[in-house]
Design a protein around this nucleic acid. Structure first.
Lengths: 191, 191, 191, 191
DNA sequence: AATGAATGAGGATTCATTCAT
DNA sequence: GATGAATGAATCCTCATTCAT
């Protein structure tokens, strides 16, 4: 009994299914069939709603990034001072949700695909741009060269995440502390 | 004209072909057939010498890392002071060869595969371990917490590389400068 | 023109095609492609419905055995006396259909595969068990040691079949007569 | 250092290797490479000496049958009476060596290939002809219809062997006893 | 005599995608 | 709106076989 207005529901289900399957398999070699099955529909329908595998993936990445973005905005909104804002950005980057297997797999997919897929590349740059911009904004009252320091802090965050996410036994707290320490040094160069 | 002692030659050719194809296509979806063709042999021979696609890839990654390792060692050997050693490590990480399309693709492959392929994971950890260890060694006379600072610098380098490698117009010099500045701050905390 | 409810039709077509190809080629080296072609579909569809070559083969064997089983039951049902039942079992074993090239090839496949494939082994044992059990039942009122005599008669039938099936010019009637004579001797040991 | 007169040695080694591999794998899907490796030589040499895979197999079958033939002749030579000769034939057919995995696999190969390969077919018929002829000869003084009884006994032996060889837990002794009992009945129809 | 080198041909299997219903 | 049906294309891999050395 086909219903009306199913489109958003189906799309959401597929996006979630993609993330789930990605997390469960750990691998990037995920088939449309698996995703559709997980979403409880036929693979034909998945194509109908998304047009192709790449776009399903893209939507999933977008979803993850959007969720992350929401968390960041919420944390920023609750931060009273510039310093607190910077800390909030770091904390969000090392939140537990970022280290869920599905999220890690998604990020690696994003990095790998960004080389070829223009859409993926754009998505990645969106994330990178936002992080930089948020950091710059937070550092502006605290640093003499906020843009450069933001660049450095952003790269440090990404690098720490990469290393922690791919470690056997990721020490998230330690990674976060290193980022925080870097923030300290940026903001209080001469104690 | 079959000759004797071809194995090392063929293996080297396949490794190089893998890197070439990886660089040319940008994509990670490279087939054994493409690689073998590029290497000027049948795909059957490729399998004969390597046993499977995964091992061909693995050998290619190993080759890239080995080459990098050699460059690093050479640069380190030529560095007179600890400070110069640390700088050499940074310079090697941002050498032009590291940004060749093939190399970038290889690194992204490595990151992506490390999630699933144990061998790839081991390889990645070998690289990460070496960078950390080299940095620690160089920082020991310069820093009060060499291990922690090395961890930070290593992550920063990886993050800067990741961002630069995936940028449309990578500003390698800028990335390197940021790393150098971080080194400065670590070694001369209170001017 | 895709229709609905094709699965049983396709499966049956594949099973029949397997038997046909097996009979036509005589060989056991039959490819999924050949079978699918004979069944008028793509090899991908064959895999879709059966999951793999082994299972296609297994289904074909099962089909042949099932058909044989049906013939046996029909013949047994029409047999008024124990003696007639025993004769019916022999006659069924030497029915013309059992000597069709496809059937012979299938049996040889079954024997050959039974060494390795557990499923095939099970199938063979099912046949052997049924023949023995049917014979035992028929011989019970006629023989002093029905189980042992059934064992003997079953082996004799198999051996005669094997020899006749693999002969250049199989003399089926003669083989059947030999089995009948053995039955005579078992049931009227002292004339 | 190639030596002279290696041909018979190499051929024998290959034949033995074929039997060994056949026995070890249980499967009929044995590659020339496996055989050659087991025989301690290159697969190219195997081809050089035998011309092709089929002929290697054929030679292996021939070897097994020849060995069996020798055992039969020896046993026959030692049998003082016709009755003893018949018993010797049965005993040879159920000798332990006939149930070695390699031998069983070889027999099943022979049956399966006999459908297609003329050479294999000829070999099978050679065996069948010899068994029949030997039995006829032994039964001539004991039976009123030695040819027919030999035919029956030969088929019984083959059938019993087939069933025992393919059983999970083959009861060789029981199979042999059944054959012996059949011999009893043939030779002493009216006690 | 012996082999490493090399390949062509083929085979099972997978999968994204399309289409008629 | 939804799906089972269906496939073409591609991929990895294996193997018997040949050839130059």
């Amino acid at each position: 009994m086909p219903k009306i207005g199913m489109e958003p529901i189906r799309r959401a289900a597929l996006v979630q299914a993609t993330i789930d399957v990605l997390g469960a398999s750990g691998s990037l070699d995920v088939t449309v069939g698996q995703i559709a099955k997980q979403a409880g529909m036929s693979s034909a329908l998945a194509h109908h709603y998304f047009g192709g595998k790449d776009q399903i993936f893209l939507a999933a990445m977008r979803s993850i990034l959007r969720e992350f973005h929401v968390e960041v905005r919420t944390a920023l909104a609750a931060a009273p001072t510039p310093r607190a804002r910077a800390e909030a950005l770091i904390e969000a980057s090392f939140a537990k949700s970022c280290f869920a297997p599905a999220t890690v797999s998604a990020w690696m997919t994003l990095y790998a695909q960004a080389t070829t897929q223009p859409d993926m590349h754009r998505l990645l740059q969106l994330y990178q741009g936002r992080l930089k911009s948020n950091l710059t904004h937070a550092l502006r009252p605290l640093s003499k060269s906020p843009s450069e320091d933001a660049e450095m802090l952003a790269a440090l965050i990404d690098g720490l995440y990469l290393r922690a996410a791919l470690a056997k036994a990721p020490n998230i707290a330690a990674a976060q502390k290193i980022a925080m320490r870097a923030l300290d040094q940026l903001t209080e160069p001469t104690p």
